[in-house]
Each structure stands twice: as C-alpha cells, then as structure tokens.
Nucleic acid binder design. Structure first.
Lengths: 99, 99
DNA sequence: TCCAATATATCGGATAACCGATAAATATAT
DNA sequence: ATATATTTATCGGTTATCCGATATATTGGA
C-alpha cells in the first residue's frame, strides 16, 4: 500500500481531456496512462464515461468520440475552481520538487 | 453524489502542509478546511497522521506538532513529481478557469 | 486543585473509486 | 464475406478513503 494512491481524479481528468478536444475512450485511457504511468482498465474508464454521459456532461457521436456539453463545461469549471482552491500554492509545490 | 469527490489527497496535502512548517493536528485540519471548504473530522485527520507516523514519514514532539522526517521529505518529493506528471498542464488548467 | 474547553485518539462502518474477467460491438484486412 | 484485432460495455467484487460516535488526554482559567 502506497502512502496514498491519489484516487478520485479520473472523472475530473477525463472531463479536462475531453474539453481540449473530443476523444474516444481508448484515447482518454491512453493519455491517462501516459500521465500517471498506469493505464486505467476498460472496467474503469467506460463506467466513468457512462457516468459522465448519464449526468449530461458529455455526448457521444457515431465515432464514439466524447465531447463536452454546455453543462459539462460549467461542471468542469466548477471543479477547476475547487481544485485550485485546494492547491492554492501549486506554483510553490512545483518549484519545490523542481519539475 | 457529486461528479467526483476528489478523494485521495488528504495524506498528500497533510504532508505538504507539514513540510512548510511543523503543525498540530487541529492546525492541519483547519487549513484543509480553509482550502476545501470542508474541515475533515477528527476521525479522518488523526488516523491519517497516525499512518504517516507509522510509515516513518513524520515525527511528533511534546507539543503534538508534526514535522517531516528525511524519509518524509523524499516521499513528498516523489508524490509531487507524480502529481505534476498527472497534471502536466496545470497552468493551462488555471488560465482556463481564470483563478 | 478542580472544572470546562479544547485537542487528540480509536473504532466500526459507509461508500467512492477502481479493477479483473468477460462479453458484445465495431473496425480492419484478406 | 469471414476472420481477426480492436474497441466498447457490463458486472461483481475489492480496497482506499473518509466519517460519526465516542472515549481519552491535555490545556487553561477560576
């Protein structure tokens, strides 16, 4: 067991990635894998995307590409604000670890 | 149920706060409350601190103030790197939500 | 010293978050 | 069109993470 697994950011990150450009499930999973060093399994990513869709935050086209809805944009913005309130000293954090 | 509760960062944030200056449990909880808008309960913060101590990442003095050990500094640094690998575009995120 | 207020600590339990295994759908090549 | 590979989807189950309730310890004032 690691110090902390830092769970709880998959949906948030997925929303963020989708906001940059519409993406298919595999693309999202692959990008998360690049960032975190561990690609989320299909059993993780697809239920998460289904959940986002069920909440009206994303839509899916014929090509299975996910895109943000207006509601999704608002929701992402709210979460970004919460994120930066929590990590208000993120610049200091970065300069501290030198990355 | 919110979109995502963003769980999993309490230990990480506690380590980060302690790294800035030694703090008592209440102080840590209060600072987390300021940032997140919700103060973690005693049943949350103290087991987390106990865990950090059990892993040799922090020490406690007579005044019950927690401070980082050398091992704790290394562990924090590793987690900071992981954090910024995951949120590699954090500046873009910030400018996006305007905060 | 005694009491009240505050801080620390512990425990059982609830649930968000994720994964493995498996199946179904879709795309691609021959 | 058929086979193969890829992508998508679902389900049950596991675990990290957190909280409520409660108990103990510590502090500060009268």
């Amino acid at each position: 067991m690691a110090l902390c697994e830092m769970k709880g950011f998959l949906s948030f990150l997925a929303l963020w990635l989708i906001s940059k450009r519409p993406m298919a499930g595999v693309e999202i999973a692959a990008e998360l894998g690049r960032r975190k060093g561990h690609t989320p399994s299909p059993g993780t990513i697809y239920p998460a995307l289904k959940d986002l869709k069920g909440k009206g935050l994303v839509t899916v086209d014929k090509k299975k590409r996910y895109a943000l809805t207006q509601k999704g944009k608002k929701e992402l913005n709210a979460h970004l604000r919460y994120f930066f309130a929590t990590f208000c000293d993120v610049e200091e954090m970065r300069s501290c670890c030198g990355k």
